[in-house]
Simulated scan of single mutants.
Amino acid sequence: MAARANGRAGAAGGGRTVSGRPRASLSPERIVEACLELLDTEGAEALTFRRIGAHLGADPTALYRHFRNKDELLLAVADKLLEESLDGYDPSDDWRETLRGLCVRAHQVYLAHPQVAVLTTVRITRRPAEMRAIDMFLGALAEAGFPPEQAVLHYRALVDFMLAWSCMDATYASLDVQTRTKDESAWSGVYAAVPADTHPHLAAAAPHLASVEEEANFRFALDLMLEAIAARADRVAR
C-alpha cells in the first residue's frame, strides 16, 4: 500500500524525485511555464505530455489533471504570452497610444518567443488575458467614437494585422542563422545589382532596401493603420 501511495503522489507531481529531493506540486501555471520553456528551446516537437512531464520530473499522466489535451495546454500558453504583454500596462489617455502600446507590446513578446508565436498567433485562447486585451482594444476604439459594430471591425483589422506581422517575424526568426543571413544580404547584393534598363524603379530604390530595419518597419506599418483608423474616426464624429 505504501508503494502505491508513493506512486500516486509522484503521478500528481508531489512526493520526492529519484534523487530524494522534494518534488514541487504541479499547478496549471507551472505546467504552462515548463511548456513555454520547452517550446522556446526545442520547438513544436517538445509539445508532448511525455516531454513536458520529463522536464518537470513528473508522471505525464499528472498533467491531465490540469489540461485535458495538448491543444488546451497550447491555448493556455498562448494566453500566457498575452498576459506577459499586458503585465504592468495601463491604457493611455490618448486612444491612439493605447492601440499602439498594445500592438507594440504584443509584437515584442511574440518575437521574444518565436517558436511559440508561430503556433499561437492564429489561435483564439478564450482565456482571461485575451479577454482583457480585447476589452482594452475595444475600449480605445469606443473612445475614438466608434459604435460597437464598427469598433469590432476596426479591432479585427488592427489586431489581425499585428498578429499576421508577428507570425511572419517569428517564422523568420525561427529560421537558421545561415538562411537568414543569405536572405538579408540579398538586399545589398542581388537587388543592388539589378540593371536599371530592365527594372528602373527597383534599381532607383535599391540603395534604400537594405536600410529598412524590421522593428522600425513594423512600427511604420502600424502607424499607417492607426492613421487610417483616426481618419475614419474623424468621419464618424462629423
Rank of each mutant, 00 (worst) to 15 (best):
W165I: 02
G14D: 13
F218W: 06
L202N: 07
L111N: 10
H199G: 00
P114D: 07
Y89F: 15
A231L: 12
A5G: 03
A76N: 07
S166E: 04
V190Y: 14
A193P: 03
L86G: 08
A142E: 15
E227K: 11
R127W: 00
Q178F: 06
R65Y: 13
R23P: 02
Q178D: 10
T121M: 10
T48S: 15
L222A: 08
R238D: 09
H107S: 03
A140R: 05
A140P: 05
T179D: 04
A24E: 13
A237C: 03
E84K: 14
L119A: 13
A62L: 10
D197Y: 08
L202A: 14
E42L: 08
F67Q: 07
G189K: 13
T61C: 00
K182S: 02
V109A: 09
E213R: 14
K182T: 04
G139N: 05
S211L: 15
R156V: 13
Q150D: 14
L102H: 06
T98F: 03
H55Y: 12
L38K: 07
L82I: 12
L73E: 04
R23E: 07
V104M: 07
A78R: 05
R4T: 10
H154R: 15
E83L: 03
F137I: 03
R127Y: 02
P200A: 09
L111I: 03
A233Y: 05
A228M: 12
A106Y: 12
E84P: 00
R4S: 09
M168S: 09
G20A: 05
T61L: 09
D183S: 05
A11R: 15
D40A: 13
R132K: 14
P114E: 09
E149K: 14
L82D: 03
A196M: 05
E42G: 03
I31Y: 13
G20V: 08
V236T: 13
L224K: 15
L39R: 10
Y172L: 08
A231C: 07
L224Y: 11
S188N: 11
R123P: 01
S27G: 11
L86W: 04
A62W: 03
E149T: 08
A9G: 00
F137K: 04
G10L: 10
V104D: 06
L202W: 12
D234T: 09
V212N: 06
A12R: 15
A2N: 13
E143L: 04
R68P: 01
A144S: 04
L119E: 14
S25R: 15
I134F: 09
D176W: 02
V109Q: 09
L119R: 14
A3D: 13
S85C: 02
R235T: 12
L138N: 08
D79W: 00
E72Q: 13
W187V: 01
R232I: 02
H55V: 01
S92I: 02
I124Q: 10
L86E: 04
L26E: 06
L226D: 04
E29Q: 14
L158E: 06
R30L: 08
M225Q: 15
D94G: 01
V194H: 05
G13T: 10
C167R: 15
G139V: 03
A205C: 06
M162P: 00
F49P: 06
D135S: 12
R23K: 15
A216T: 08
R156A: 12
R123E: 11
G139K: 07
F218S: 01
E213W: 06
T171V: 01
D79P: 04
A5K: 14
F137C: 02
L47M: 13
P128A: 04
S19W: 10
S19F: 11
